[in-house]
Design a protein around this nucleic acid. Structure first.
Length: 414
DNA sequence: TCTGGGGTCCTCAGACGA
DNA sequence: TCTGTCGTCTGAGGACCC
């Protein structure tokens, strides 16, 4: 079972593909800076509070991995090259790769910039052949390597792509089958000996709980009485895990899923201790979230403030408005209102603003609050037009000073 | 060791109305 | 009228993913 298999064999293929780019951010950087090829490279925040977002296989050979603090990555691999990252560029490359995937089937569900599920049940050719074709075309057109998992269900396809990836060595990626298939009918046998941590949705907390009831393999989880499992990890989570362990995953591939929330957050190089400093940041973050809402033609009703203190404890405070808003001014006002109820004297390392309960800003009855918001709507649109024409830096909120009648007007930077 | 940023989903508790 | 129950909504937080 597994690996690249020709269709002449007897087993039947599943029609779900999971495509996963290899070290995506780093690969994109190495394309525009070929001198970085073959070197240990990481993309991420290089500062004292930064973490690794993506690491080259050469860096991984030293034990560096994503989400690792930059300080630790440097300790493990002193010669590592840290790059700040260019999200705009990654977005553009990702969109071109997704277009390649859509040339094989319209049923493409992006999971993030660098991975996607495909349903190729209606496509021409066998799923394994399609997997190889996708790898070829992504490599030829974009210079990026990717791994493909083929299975009957999403969870197994995702596990397959993980197993198709090369191994990290100091000399770079080594081996890797490229396309890994879990044939239909062999799922349970494939899963049974694997560690339970291979299940999508089992992180450190769940792993510890499962360990506490003597479960370490997926096979053990599959045989465990559901009622006892649910008592330990909760009903919904228990059912989900039990199903996955038994290779049951009815989730379809859904293209074009609408976002459910949008947020922006920022970690400071040093903790901030006053509402004034934090309020100024909230204005900028709110403006950014609102701008993205408008460009997606969405508006949200629930505003959430996130505060992480110096000791890493995190709280959220939220408020649901009468109607959806997409104005940075209104978001900032609500976020500041929520912040006023938080004691920040101990020091804040991160602050964030999020909006959920998203909908299209359509017809609805306007409240007095809405009318006030609407008066800023035209201003926000004008700002969008200026940024569209002259770039995102062309105009910024005056929230840093937080002065003026509205507590954060628009300024043109010098 | 010391933990970014942007998401999704789930659980739990309290308020509230039927 | 009072009390208990149930469902729903909202808010807060945890866990997980890339």
């Amino acid at each position: 079972m597994g690996g690249s298999r020709s269709d002449s064999e007897q087993t039947r293929s599943g029609s779900i593909l999971h495509v996963d780019m290899d070290a995506f951010f780093v690969s994109v950087e190495q394309l525009r800076r070929p001198e970085l090829k073959g070197l240990p490279v990481a993309v991420g925040g290089p500062g004292s509070r930064g973490v690794v977002a993506s690491a080259s296989y050469e860096a991984r050979a030293f034990g560096v991995h994503s989400a690792m603090p930059a300080v630790r990555a440097r300790r493990l691999c002193p010669e590592i090259v840290f790059l700040p990252g260019d999200h705009q560029l990654y977005q553009e490359v990702s969109e071109r790769i997704m277009a390649i995937l859509r040339s094989f089937t319209p049923l493409v569900e992006p999971l993030s910039l660098d991975e996607a599920f495909l349903d190729v049940s209606g496509a021409r050719g066998s799923p394994v052949e399609i997997g190889h074709s996708i790898r070829r075309q992504v490599r030829d057109d974009e210079g990026i390597n990717c791994a493909v998992g083929v299975a009957a269900v999403k969870f197994l396809a995702k596990l397959g792509s993980k197993l198709a990836k090369p191994e990290p060595t100091p000399q770079g990626p080594s081996g890797g089958v490229g396309v890994f298939e879990v044939p239909v009918g062999e799922e349970r046998a494939f899963l049974s000996p694997r560690p339970v941590g291979d299940i999508w949705g089992v992180g450190p907390a769940t792993l510890a709980r499962l360990d506490g009831i003597g479960i370490s393999t997926i096979g053990e989880l599959a045989e465990f009485p559901f009622e006892r499992l649910a008592a330990v990890v909760g009903n919904a989570h228990g059912k989900h895990l039990h199903d996955l362990a038994n290779a049951v995953d009815p989730r379809p591939v859904i293209p074009n899923t609408a976002p459910k929330s949008m947020s922006r957050e920022q970690t400071f190089p040093r903790d901030l201790h006053t509402h004034e400093e934090l309020g100024a940041v909230l204005v900028a973050l709110s403006d950014s979230v609102a701008s993205r809402l408008r460009s997606s033609e969405l508006a949200g009703r629930t505003v959430t403030l996130k505060v992480r203190f110096g000791d890493f404890t995190t709280i959220t405070r939220s408020h649901t408005l009468a109607g959806p808003v997409d104005s940075g001014v209104v978001l900032a006002r609500e976020a500041k209102r929520l912040l006023e109820e938080v004691d920040v004297a101990a020091g804040v390392r991160l602050i964030g603003v999020g909006v959920s309960e998203l909908e299209e800003p359509g017809q609805r009855q306007l409240s007095l609050e809405d009318v006030q918001a609407t008066s800023w709507h035209d201003v926000d649109r004008a700002v969008d037009r200026i940024r569209g024409r002259f770039g995102s830096e062309a105009i910024q909120t005056g929230g840093a000073s937080d002065t003026g009648p509205r507590g954060g007007g628009w300024i043109r930077p010098n």
